[in-house]
Design a protein around this nucleic acid. Sequence first.
DNA 1: GTCAATCTTTACGGAATCTTTACGCCTCAC
DNA 2: GTGAGGCGTAAAGATTCCGTAAAGATTGAC
Lengths: 233, 233
Amino acid sequence: MASTRPNILVIEDDPPIRRFLRASLSSHDFDVQEAPGGKEALKLATQQPPDLVILDLGLPDVDGLEVIRQLRQWATMPIIIVSARGQEKDKVAALDAGADDYLTKPFGVGELLARIRVALRHAVTLAAGRGESSQFRVGQLHVDLAARRVLVAEAEVHLTPIEYKLLTTLAHYAGKVLTHRFLLKEVWGPTYSDQTHYLRIFMANLRRKIESDPARPRYLLTEQGVGYRLAEE
Amino acid sequence: MASTRPNILVIEDDPPIRRFLRASLSSHDFDVQEAPGGKEALKLATQQPPDLVILDLGLPDVDGLEVIRQLRQWATMPIIIVSARGQEKDKVAALDAGADDYLTKPFGVGELLARIRVALRHAVTLAAGRGESSQFRVGQLHVDLAARRVLVAEAEVHLTPIEYKLLTTLAHYAGKVLTHRFLLKEVWGPTYSDQTHYLRIFMANLRRKIESDPARPRYLLTEQGVGYRLAEE
DNA sequence: GTCAATCTTTACGGAATCTTTACGCCTCAC
DNA sequence: GTGAGGCGTAAAGATTCCGTAAAGATTGAC
């Protein structure tokens, strides 16, 4: 699909293994970015989002699971874990945090490449629709998913966790109407599906913080009897 | 997204393992279908396509790789391989044939479940990406079913829930005449089958919003004594 | 243990929508 | 011609849905 070579970000602190991965990937038609630690990796990923991430869980600076969660705040590209720890609970934790695959060292290059092909196969099909980015903009409203910040007219606005989740869920489907039920499931969890008054209250809170005239909203729009919608350009 | 429990097809010839998988999956909110061989499996899969397939490569009747290829001829649901053979070339062959994951026996149930969750996660995202070309057009009228929006001459028109349901029902059968009874059942529910005056009122409302000359409708056409019809190109 | 921030619960006025009622027009059979 | 049935339109009444405020409960930080 992509006319250029797929770009892979390798997050690995051990220099020999990093070199080895770079060599293996480069010779199989991939572009490679490298990061020795989680901090650099997250920065790199926002600056130039890769098509796939290979992540060693045993990083010196940040917990590997935390790197997964940070990336998943805004990105959907495949994440393949490469780890010395082969305990089942480690695998389950990583996969549930948002990783797509988990290889235990030592592993063969052939298998890694095959699993990369599988992951990219998935990614191509779904990336076709949405050109994802770590930012969302509409009018004066600016949501930075990677930094977890919300700006209105260049001024930062503080949101509570639920307010933030609600706004980002709407932003993820910007322009589309999301039903009450769906929003409640997504933000509060499946057991809250019929607590529609929660939505009314938190939408009011969000509007007070984001809209210049909360009574006549420009971004957070109501679809009576159905749900809510975030305006897009 | 799916309101019912995900359905998993287990293809495994060894009865104890099959029983074990059934028990593990059933107790974790999955519906399970079983097949002891490739032939039955392929037949079952066409009759009642599962949401995910767990496949043992060492089947007595058909080669496991062949089962993958057969399924991939028409289906895209995730396939997770479960095999006693852990050779790298086996894994690569299966993954490249179209499998999505490969576990080597013995494996933990926790890991299998986690990898199932990953695979289903992908499947949901994929489905969401595909279903975005759901639009209807005729003349100046444009209905965007995904965003739940209606445009007339590029300008958005606000519709109430019932108006919208009525319009989309007509659009779904564009060009065909729908009887009063059918529309009432579809939009209001089966108990309203003889409230034909509702239809007159809401058709008038719709025309006022959509037609440039409501008295001489171009899109929402009346079929005297029968019902209504939405014009198509 | 206290305090601050957030989430949950309760209550109510107003707006949007649906339902009901009413009336005029047209067509067609007799 | 005329009266009945089907249709379109208007407007008032009833109901549901939404926005807002504020008090109570919970959580986490120090």
